[in-house]
C-alpha cells in the first residue's frame, strides 16, 4: 500500500434518496489515496445510490462529498466537470456507446480531452483494451459482446484518461472466475503501480478478499453503514449478525425441509443487481 495515506475522498453525513424515500441516512466515511475501498451489502441496500451520489449524478438530500479538497455537492457546473475529470466510472450495465465500436468507445475520451494524434490514441486505446483482456475485439460493437466483455470494455473506457480515482459498480458480477481473478489482479496492479484509488461496489466475496484494503458494509434497515474495516477483520470478528451471514454466505432463513440441507443458503448474497 502507498506510503502516503492522505484522504482523497471524504463523505460527510450524507443523506440520500429519491423523492421522499430516504435510502441512506447520515453516512460518513473517508477513502485514502491509493486504497481499494469496497462498498458491499446485500441487494437493495443502497450501494449504487451511494455511488451515484459520490460521483455527482444525484444530488444528496443533505451532507457533503469532498473529492480532493473540492466539495461536489455545492460545486457549480464548471467545478463539477473539473472534479469529474479526475475520476473514471464503470457503470453496472457497462453503458458503452452502442453505436461505436469498442476501440471508438475507448478513443472517445482521449479524442475529446487530449491532444494526442490519431495513431497515439489508437495505441493508448488498444493498450487499455488489452489490459482488460479484450485484444482482438477492438472492432466489434458492444451489442455483439457478452455481458462480461461489455463490463471489461467499460472498465477500459473508464481508464482511458488514467484518472486518479476509478469507481467500479459491480465489476466482476457475471464474470467467469478466471476473468474475474484477472480483473482483481489488474485492480491491484493499477493501485500499487500507478497509485489509482479504487472505489468498488461488489458482493463477490472472493474478489473482496483479494482486492479490498478496507470495506464498508451497508444495510437497508440501518440505512447506512453497518460495519467498516478490513475484510479479514469483518469475517473473523463480525460486529453484527448480518455481517457474519454475509461473509459466511448464509441465508437469512433456515433451510426448509430435507431437500434444502447443507447449512449455507444460496442466492441471497449473490444476487445480480442491487
Amino acid at each position: 500500500m502507498p506510503a502516503e495515506s492522505d484522504t482523497l475522498i471524504r463523505v460527510e453525513s450524507l443523506t440520500a434518496g429519491y423523492g421522499d424515500r430516504t435510502i441512506l441516512e447520515n453516512v460518513s466515511f473517508e477513502v485514502n489515496r491509493g486504497e481499494v475501498f469496497v462498498i458491499l451489502g446485500t441487494s437493495g441496500c443502497g450501494k449504487t445510490t451511494l455511488l451515484r451520489n459520490i460521483i455527482g449524478l444525484e444530488l444528496p438530500l443533505s451532507g457533503r462529498v469532498w473529492i480532493g479538497g473540492d466539495d461536489l455537492v455545492s460545486a457549480d457546473e464548471e467545478v463539477l466537470q473539473r472534479i469529474q475529470r479526475r475520476f473514471g466510472v464503470m457503470f453496472q450495465g457497462g453503458a458503452l456507446f452502442g453505436s461505436l465500436t469498442l476501440l471508438e468507445n475507448v478513443r472517445l475520451p482521449l479524442e475529446e480531452f487530449t491532444e494526442l494524434n490519431d495513431e497515439a490514441i489508437d495505441w493508448v486505446a488498444r493498450m487499455k483494451l488489452q489490459l482488460v483482456g479484450l485484444q482482438g475485439s477492438e472492432d466489434r460493437m458492444p451489442g455483439e459482446l457478452s455481458g462480461g466483455m461489455q463490463k471489461r470494455a467499460a472498465i477500459a473506457r473508464a481508464m482511458a484518461l488514467d484518472p486518479e480515482i476509478l469507481f467500479l459498480d459491480e465489476p466482476s458480477a457475471g464474470l467467469d472466475p478466471v476473468t474475474s481473478a484477472g480483473l482483481d489482479r489488474l485492480i491491484l496492479d493499477l493501485s500499487s503501480i500507478l497509485g489509482v484509488t479504487f472505489i468498488v461496489v461488489t458482493h463477490e466475496l472472493q474478489s473482496i478478499y483479494a482486492i479490498a484494503s478496507r470495506a464498508i458494509m451497508l444495510d437497508r434497515e440501518v440505512r447506512g453503514i453497518l460495519a467498516m474495516g478490513t475484510p479479514a477483520a469483518l469475517r473473523e470478528s463480525p460486529p453484527h449478525e448480518k455481517v457474519r451471514r454475509f461473509f459466511h454466505r448464509e441465508a437469512e432463513t433456515e433451510p426448509v425441509g430435507p431437500g434444502g440441507s447443507g447449512g449455507s443458503g444460496n442466492g441471497r448474497v449473490r444476487g445480480g443487481a442491487s
Binding site: L116, W123, V124, M127, L161, L194
Partner: peptide, 11 residues
Amino acid sequence: MDGSGMALLLR
C-alpha cells in the same frame, strides 16, 4: 507516466 506514456514506450 500514464497510459499514453506507456503507449509511447511500447511504440
